[in-house]
């Protein structure tokens, strides 16, 4: 933000002030940084710190691409792409699995009716992703517990408990566990001292969208891993290393 300071926008009223961005450059021709009461405009470096795209950026991009290519070539030399028998509509493999990136959804199908797991949930996820930048823009990226800690903690408790109860009701333990883990982490960080320089403090500085996205990420990874490695015939639970 600070490197955007260029203009001389007067900061006349540095009291309670809502900051907002507008991407329409015709309506808001100058991008503005706002200095609130709690921060000091301590500018360490202003102006351009730019390099030429050619050759600095291009070379780096070329190196990155080459590194990826090397990795892919090595993998391709060592591991053959899977190929099974000719497609046979009469012979259903058990289990029949979708590609790995849809196995999270297929795992959900195990718990919810197809309309919910196959249509409602994915649609909601896509919709949520699309509206993220338009909705509840936390421009200050304020730590979740920075203000109104007591009230928020009640809300968090209620939200996590309600979600858990819902998941227990449908016995969706594959989602329940990551939910409890991330919810628990959120609650625990409330206790971390605000000035903590370590991991706790880092977590405490994270806003609510961080927590929600992290919850989503953990749930998605858990479901995908379970669907890929831990599901066998009839979508029953199996251990990838075989029966003990």
């Amino acid at each position: 933000m600070v490197d955007c300071i260029r203009g001389t926008s007067p900061v006349s009223e540095p009291k309670d002030f809502r900051a907002s961005f507008d991407s329409d450059s015709q309506r808001t021709p100058v991008r503005v940084a706002f200095v609130t009461r709690r921060t000091t405009p301590h500018v360490t470096k202003a102006g351009d710190d730019r390099v030429m795209t050619n050759p600095d950026a291009l070379l780096r991009v070329a190196v990155a691409v080459m590194a990826l290519l090397i990795v892919l070539v090595v993998v391709s030399l060592l591991f053959d792409a899977p190929l099974e028998g000719l497609a046979n509509p009469l012979q259903t493999p058990n289990p029949a699995k979708a590609p790995w990136y849809f196995l999270g959804l297929q795992e959900l199908l195990h718990y919810f009716p197809p309309v919910v797991a196959g249509v409602v949930i994915p649609s909601l996820v896509v919709l949520a992703l699309v509206v993220i930048p338009y909705f509840n823009v936390n421009v200050e990226a304020e730590g979740f517990w920075n203000r109104n800690g007591e009230r928020k903690s009640i809300l968090v408790w209620v939200a996590v408990a309600a979600l858990s109860a819902f998941l227990v009701w449908f016995s969706v333990y594959a989602v329940l566990v990551p939910t409890l883990v991330s919810g628990g982490a959120l609650i625990v960080t409330a206790a971390a001292p605000p000035q903590d320089k370590g991991f706790g403090g880092w977590l405490r500085s994270k806003p609510l969208p961080f927590w929600i996205m992290t919850w989503f990420l953990v749930v998605a990874i858990t479901l995908t891993v379970i669907g890929t490695c831990f599901r066998g015939a009839g979508w029953s639970w199996v251990w990838p290393w075989g029966e003990l």
């Binding site: 099974e84 000719l86 497609a87 509509p89 029949a96 699995k97």
Partner: peptide, 10 residues
Amino acid sequence: DQLAFWAITV
């Protein structure tokens, strides 16, 4: 192949 056919069917 079988993998492809049934993944798409699912």
